[in-house]
Design a binder for these strands. Structure first.
Length: 335
DNA sequence: TTGTGTTTTATTGCCTCC
DNA sequence: GGAGGCAATAAAACACAA
């Protein structure tokens, strides 16, 4: 027990003391300092209730009117005895007086209703609790500060959780992205290899054509058989694939599939086949898929879904690849 | 019992609003 | 200019481990 502490309870068996003991354990002899004041400085320590005239708040102490304190009327008449210690205590300037548990509970309830204090409410609370209005105001001020601190802690926790969640998502997506980039590199290398093979085959074919002195100015479609047209289309498809894929790989921030022109010299703006106009970034994934299908693929063609594609081996005969990304359309390659 | 950390009460100075 | 709110701070009261 700290030195200099003065407790108001002269009668340890009072109901209030019991109440306080129950609520605060060893601190049950909580001073009722702010609640009572011996105006005559001569009151006996008998158990007789001093009544509203004797039960003075700080307001009374400092010249208030000593009106009835409804907060205390609930207590019995023999709760508090006053002694010389109390008198001595009240004459120690600068001593801090803790509020009783009941006073604090009362204030807490009031704070829950409204954490701001209008002047009328402040006066009423002060009357009810036997405190100075100033004390009530200070209590509310400090209580608001505590509430704010708690609120900030909660907000911090929420933000921290949100940050951790986003970070985990980001890391997951980054890993996925790296993995896909690696796969695409492997696939594009494969395509390049095949393109070179085709080119060498084509050169051989050209040479043989020259040797046979056939006219070479014929349009492709006229000179080539159906099968040959198919092969040339495949090569063009591959060329387009490679450049667009590489573009996407090495410029991941570039808008996807928005400039099919740069990657396919056969496609010009205005062509019926010019499907990718400059700004289609607001198209949905479905719309884009349909657009792509219309431009490149036979009608009715359906892109294979991620789970249907075997990524372990580069596709041998197909140049179609789609990576469906659920909520985030960071990546979408079709070729 | 004592040292130390925490909580509570109260003060001070600054700012805003009427 | 006064009242009231807020942040920073002091200091008493309290809790608790050693």
């Amino acid at each position: 027990m700290a030195g200099g502490r003065v407790y108001g309870g002269g009668n340890g068996s009072s109901s209030l003391s019991v109440l306080l003991q129950n609520q605060r354990g060893s601190s049950g002899s909580e001073p009722l300092d702010s609640l009572f004041f011996s105006g005559s400085c001569n009151s006996s320590t008998s158990s007789s209730f001093l009544g509203s005239r004797s039960m003075m708040s700080f307001e009374d102490f400092h010249g208030g009117n000593g009106s009835n304190k409804s907060f205390f009327r609930s207590f019995g008449s023999d709760e508090i005895g006053l002694d010389d210690d109390l008198d001595e205590y009240f004459h120690q300037p600068g001593k801090k007086r803790r509020l009783t548990v009941d006073q604090v509970q009362f204030l807490e309830k009031s704070f829950e209703v409204e954490n701001k204090l209008e002047p009328e409410r402040k006066v009423q609370l002060a009357k009810d609790l036997g405190l100075q209005p100033r004390q009530v105001a200070i209590w509310f001020q400090n209580r608001r500060a505590r509430w704010k601190t708690k609120q900030m802690e909660k907000d911090y926790d929420v933000l921290q959780a949100s940050y951790n969640s986003l970070k985990a998502d980001y890391e997951s997506l980054r890993k996925e992205t790296d993995k896909l980039k690696a796969e695409v590199l492997v696939l594009s290398d494969e395509l390049l290899k095949r393109e070179k093979e085709k080119e060498s085959n084509s050169e051989l074919s050209d040479n043989s054509n020259k040797l046979s002195e056939e006219p070479v100015e014929k349009p492709l479609a006229e000179s080539a058989s159906e099968g040959e047209v198919s092969k040339v289309s495949t090569v063009l498809c591959h060329q387009e694939d490679i450049s667009s894929v590489k573009s996407d790989i090495f410029d991941s921030d570039s808008p996807r599939l928005t400039d099919g022109v740069h990657s396919n010299p056969l496609m010009e703006p205005g062509d019926s086949s010019y499907a990718f106009e400059a700004d289609q970034s607001d198209l949905s994934q479905d719309e884009e898929d349909k657009l792509i299908s219309r431009s490149f693929l036979p009608s009715g063609y359906v892109f294979p879904k991620l789970e249907d594609v075997d990524y372990s081996d580069p596709p041998e005969s197909s140049c179609n690849f789609e990576y469906p990304v659920e909520d985030h359309a960071f990546w979408s390659w079709s070729y």
